[in-house]
Amino acid sequence: MTGEVAVLGAGMHPWGKWGRSFVEYGTAAARAALTDAGIDWQQVRSVVGADTMRCGYPGYVAGATFAQALGWQGARVTSVYAACASGAQAINTARSQILAGMADVVLVVGADAAPKGFFAPAGGERPDDPDWLRFRVLGATNPAYFGLYARRRMALYGDTPEDFALVKVKNAAAGALNPNARYRKAVSAEDVAASAVVADPLRLLDICATSDGAAALVLTSMDFARRHGAGDPVRIRAVSTVTPTYPKAVLDLPDIATDSAAAVDPLPRPFRASIALAAYEEAGIGPEDLSLAEVYDLSTALELEWYEDIGLCGAGEGAKLVREGATALGGRIPVNVSGGLASFGEAVPAQAIAQVCELTWQLRGTAGRRQVPGARTGITANQGLFGHGSAVVAVR
Rank of each mutant, 00 (worst) to 15 (best):
A37V: 04
P115A: 12
G213V: 10
Q97A: 14
T258P: 12
Y149F: 10
M102S: 12
A140M: 11
H388V: 11
G387N: 10
E294D: 07
L341Y: 07
S338T: 00
G325C: 00
V187E: 09
L34G: 02
N180L: 15
A238V: 06
H13Q: 13
L107W: 11
P247C: 07
D309S: 13
A69Y: 00
L34I: 09
P254W: 15
A29Y: 00
G11W: 10
A263I: 05
V392C: 04
K168S: 05
V106F: 08
T243K: 09
V322E: 08
A189K: 14
I275T: 06
V393W: 00
W72V: 02
D212G: 12
G139A: 10
A315W: 08
A216K: 02
V234A: 01
W132L: 15
R227K: 04
A144Y: 12
A67V: 04
V77D: 04
P268R: 05
L321Q: 07
A319F: 03
L363C: 06
A29N: 05
E125D: 15
I353H: 07
A261Q: 07
M53P: 00
A62E: 08
V137H: 15
P266K: 06
A29L: 02
A62M: 02
Q68V: 02
R370Y: 03
R364E: 00
P373Q: 05
T377I: 14
N180A: 15
A199F: 12
A176T: 06
T360K: 02
E358I: 05
D309M: 12
A150V: 00
F344L: 11
A375F: 03
P121S: 13
A174R: 02
V109A: 08
F146M: 06
R95F: 07
S86D: 06
L177S: 04
A215P: 07
P233N: 02
L107D: 12
G340D: 01
T52G: 06
S240Q: 06
R151H: 09
P233L: 01
R184V: 13
D206V: 07
G49S: 00
Q351R: 11
T210A: 15
R332V: 01
A173E: 01
E162D: 10
D191C: 10
Q43W: 04
V372Y: 05
T300P: 01
G59W: 03
V242G: 09
T27I: 07
A186E: 15
L156T: 03
R237Q: 08
L385Y: 10
V23P: 01
V239H: 00
S291H: 00
A215F: 09
A199E: 13
K185M: 06
M222C: 07
Q355S: 09
V47G: 00
D112C: 11
R226V: 09
P179I: 09
F344V: 11
G9L: 02
A225F: 05
